[in-house]
Structures are given as structure tokens and as C-alpha cells.
Deep mutational scan, measured.
Amino acid sequence: RKEMTAACTPRRRIINLTSVLSLQEEINEQGHEVLREMLHNHSFVGCVNPQWALAQHQTKLYLLNTTKLSEELFYQILIYDFANFGVLRLSEPAPLFDLAMLALDSPESGWTEEDGPKEGLAEYIVEFLKKKAEMLADYFSLEIDEEGNLIGLPLLIDNYVPPLEGLPIFILRLATEVNWDEEKECFESLSKECAMFYSIRKQYISEESTLSGQQSEVPGSIPNSWKWTVEHIVYKALRSHILPPKHFTEDGNILQLANLPDLYKVFERC
């Protein structure tokens, strides 16, 4: 597991931080080997919608929660590849102030007048994250320049770009939802926020969305749709870069829909 690298990086740093090793061990302890084997050997059937997909393993048909699986995938990559990410360069710098204002204007932020003026909160978020810029760049390849612009994001899987519609809320939550006081809790909560931002979430995906850094293989055609990215990038990574937690067998994120021999018997009677 320590050699797990989802995106190509030129050289690998050895990380011996106790906090990170502890988080890696927790993933191992909570892992479910049968689910790992199923995901490793599954045959992708198709997307139901951005949140759900169908896959077959041996004779069984499964309904998989793409949102939760991708979130767990990105969390584990962030923990196992800690401080070893490439950088996704933004085509132009994104001012943190503008991103924070967009987030505060969104109902998702939960902002009320009692929280104070949005401009003041946005300025605080910019200054707060600028103070964390060195650590964010060093460990997470999340790059913020001296003017308070976001200029780079971590490359977690080759050819995958997170849904940038979720970027404003991500920046807001970096400042408000991460435990910045304790090292282990900081790395864990920061990785979880980043994983949620990178995950496939239906509120940020339309039929026209593209999450891939590449064009489709047909010359002159439109960019790959999110469905292509889910199948050929995300579920491909799920084959080798995730140890599913045991609770996925109990919380409805992986559901067995049918045993195909039983279905064949039904059709034979028709």
C-alpha cells in the first residue's frame, strides 16, 4: 500500500510523520478485503446518474454509490500519497476573496446577518489561508500566491479535474471546517474536505460537464463527458487505489441488486 500512486510524480518523498502513518493504519484496520476484491475485478455496466452506477462482479449485479466511493478513493490517495502530488495549474489565478464571496452568497454556506458582513468574512478567509499557504503547498500541492490567488490544485489521478463549480464552497470550508490546531486532526479533516471537493457530486455535474483533463479519443470531437470520466478514470482507479471500509457493506453505498443465475431462471419461465 505504501507504493500506491494514482498520479505520476517525478520522485517520491518518504513521509514518516506519526500522524500520517496513524491515518494510514486506520484505513488498513477499517478495510474490507472482500469489497476490495469485488472492486478490483468488477465489470463496469454503466452510470445511472452522477451519484449511482451499476457494476457486475462474477454472477452478481451491484449498485454502487459513485459519490461515496470516489470520496473515499480521493481521501485514501491523499493519505497514502501525502506530500507526493503533482499540481493542476489553473488556467488563470482565482482570487480567494472572490471565491469566498461566491460561497457566502450560496445558501449552502449557511451565512446569516449575525455572522457579520460577507466582505469582512471573505477578507478573513483570504488572510487565514495565506498564512497556511506554505503547508498547503508542501503537503497538498494546493498553491496560493502572495496576492491571495489560488493558482494550483493537487493532481490526485492523472487526467482528472475536480468539478470546479464546487471550488468556492471548498475554499470556505478549508477556513471553517478544518481542525487547524492538532496535526493528525488537521491532516485528516483537510484531506476529507479535499476528497469531498474532488468527489463526483450530482449538484455540480450536468450532462455537459467534463471532468477530464483530456479530449476524447476521436479527433475533432467534444470533450469527454462526465460519464466517460466516471467509467474510464474514476472506476479504473477504484480497481487498484481503494481499500473500501467495512461500513460500506452496511450503509447502502454498495448494494447487491441481483444474482444473475437467479434472473436467468426467471427469464426461462417467461
Rank of each mutant, 00 (worst) to 15 (best):
A94Y: 15
Y264A: 15
H32R: 06
G116K: 07
I169M: 13
E37V: 09
V161Y: 07
L102V: 07
L17D: 05
N149Q: 12
K2T: 14
K60G: 08
L153M: 07
D145G: 05
K265Q: 14
P50N: 03
L129Q: 02
C186V: 03
A94G: 05
P50R: 04
R12K: 09
A55I: 09
L211E: 14
I157W: 03
K131W: 14
F267S: 15
Y124V: 14
E71F: 06
L96D: 00
E217R: 09
R201Q: 06
E119Q: 12
H241D: 07
P107W: 09
S199T: 03
I254T: 04
A103M: 01
L61M: 06
T112C: 15
L238M: 12
L64F: 13
E250R: 06
H247V: 11
K132C: 02
E165V: 09
S109D: 05
L23D: 00
K236Y: 06
M4K: 05
L121K: 15
I169D: 12
D98V: 06
S91C: 15
D115I: 08
N179R: 10
D145P: 01
E183K: 03
L54I: 15
M4Y: 14
L69K: 00
E119C: 09
E188P: 02
S43F: 12
Y204E: 03
E217P: 08
Q30C: 11
L121C: 08
E134Y: 06
Y235I: 03
G252E: 15
D98A: 07
G46M: 08
T176S: 11
F140P: 00
V20E: 01
K246V: 14
F140W: 15
H42C: 13
W52Y: 12
V87N: 09
G252Q: 07
R201N: 06
E231T: 03
E147L: 09
D181V: 14
M38F: 06
G86Q: 12
V218T: 15
L90S: 03
M4F: 11
V48R: 03
H40Q: 09
Q214T: 11
G148S: 08
R239Y: 00
E92V: 10
L243Q: 13
F82K: 00
Q58D: 12
P93G: 06
A83E: 03
T176W: 14
K265M: 08
M101R: 13
L129V: 07
D115C: 06
E231Q: 09
K130N: 14
Q214F: 08
E268N: 08
I222N: 14
L150R: 00
L167M: 11
V20Y: 01
S199R: 02
E119T: 11
P168Y: 03
F187E: 00
E71A: 07
I125R: 02
P117Q: 07
F187M: 06
R173V: 01
E127D: 10
K265D: 15
I205H: 04
T5C: 04
Y75G: 02
L172N: 04
E250L: 08
V178D: 00
E193Q: 07
I233N: 06
H57T: 06
E193M: 04
L190K: 00
E146S: 12
R89L: 14
S206D: 15
L211S: 13
H247N: 13
V45G: 04
A100K: 01
Y80E: 09
E231K: 04
L69D: 00
L255C: 11
L88Q: 15
L260G: 10
M38T: 07
A53L: 01
E26K: 09
G252R: 05
P93A: 15
F128M: 14
V34L: 10
P107T: 13
L35G: 04
L190R: 02
T249V: 15
E29K: 10
L243C: 11
R1A: 15
L129I: 09
N253A: 13
P50T: 07
L35K: 02
S216D: 15
L69T: 00
S19K: 04
N49T: 13
S216V: 14
S212I: 15
D262Y: 12
L156S: 00
Y204Q: 03
E231D: 03
L88A: 10
P168K: 04
R239C: 02
E188S: 13
L63S: 02
H42T: 06
C47F: 11
G46K: 15
G213I: 14
P10T: 08
T112L: 08
P95F: 08
A7C: 13
P93K: 07
L211A: 10
P245K: 05
I171F: 04
Y204G: 03
F170E: 01
S189Q: 10
G116P: 07
K60V: 15
F248V: 03
R11M: 11
P244C: 03
V234D: 01
E268C: 05
R11I: 10
G148V: 04
C186R: 04
K265N: 15
E119L: 14
K246G: 12
A122M: 02
N149W: 09
Q24M: 10
L21Q: 11
S221L: 14
L164R: 14
E250W: 06
R1V: 15
L54Y: 04
H32D: 15
D158H: 12
E114R: 09
C47I: 14
M196C: 14
N224S: 14
I169G: 12
S221C: 13
I77S: 03
G120C: 09
Q215R: 11
E268G: 07
A103D: 01
N84P: 01
I242C: 15
G110I: 13
S206V: 09
P223T: 15
Y124I: 12
I15N: 06
D145M: 01
L164P: 07
S22M: 09
P219W: 11
L255R: 14
Y160D: 01
E108R: 08
E165I: 09
E183P: 04
I171L: 11
S191N: 01
P50F: 07
L164I: 08
I205Q: 04
R36T: 12
Y160S: 01
T176Y: 10
E33R: 13
V230M: 04
P223G: 13
R173Y: 01
L90T: 04
S19Y: 03
Y62I: 08
E71N: 05
L260R: 10
T59C: 08
V20F: 03
V230P: 00
Q56V: 15
L61G: 04
K236M: 06
S141M: 08
R201T: 03
N159M: 08
E33W: 10
E123V: 12
A7F: 06
D251T: 09
C8E: 13
A103F: 03
L136V: 05
D181F: 12
P244D: 01
T66V: 00
Q215L: 09
D138P: 01
V48H: 03
S22H: 06
D98Y: 11
E37R: 07
R12A: 15
E146A: 10
N179K: 12
L121Q: 12
S216E: 15
F128V: 09
L54S: 03
R13C: 06
L104V: 07
I205Y: 08
F197Y: 05
W52L: 14
P261N: 14
V87I: 15
V266H: 14
L99K: 04
K192L: 06
M101T: 08
A237P: 00
T5E: 07
L63N: 00
E217S: 07
W228R: 11
Q24R: 08
F85Q: 04
C47W: 04
S191W: 00
P117A: 07
L174S: 02
N84A: 03
C270L: 10
Y75F: 10
Y264V: 11
D262H: 15
P107Q: 13
Q203L: 08
N179P: 06
L35Q: 04
Y62D: 00
I144A: 03
L153C: 04
W111V: 09
L64W: 04
S106K: 14
L69R: 00
Y235E: 00
Y80K: 11
H232Y: 07
L64H: 00
L54T: 05
G116L: 07
Y124A: 14
G110H: 12
E177Y: 09
S22Y: 11
K192Q: 14
L17W: 06
S199Y: 00
S22P: 08
T9A: 11
N28F: 13
L238K: 00
T9Q: 09
K192F: 06
C8V: 08
E185M: 11
K246T: 15
S225W: 05
V266Y: 10
I125T: 08
E193V: 08
V126R: 09
E188G: 09
F170A: 00
T67Y: 03
E72L: 04
W226A: 01
L190W: 04
A175T: 14
L17E: 06
K236D: 09
Y264F: 12
P163N: 08
V45F: 06
E231I: 02
R36Y: 07
E185G: 11
H42Q: 09
P245C: 03
L156R: 01
L243H: 10
I254C: 10
N179W: 08
R36K: 14
K2P: 09
L39P: 00
L142M: 09
H232K: 06
D105L: 14
L255W: 05
H57E: 07
A175L: 11
S199D: 02
T66W: 00
F97P: 04
N149K: 07
F85T: 09
T229V: 12
E33F: 08
I200G: 01
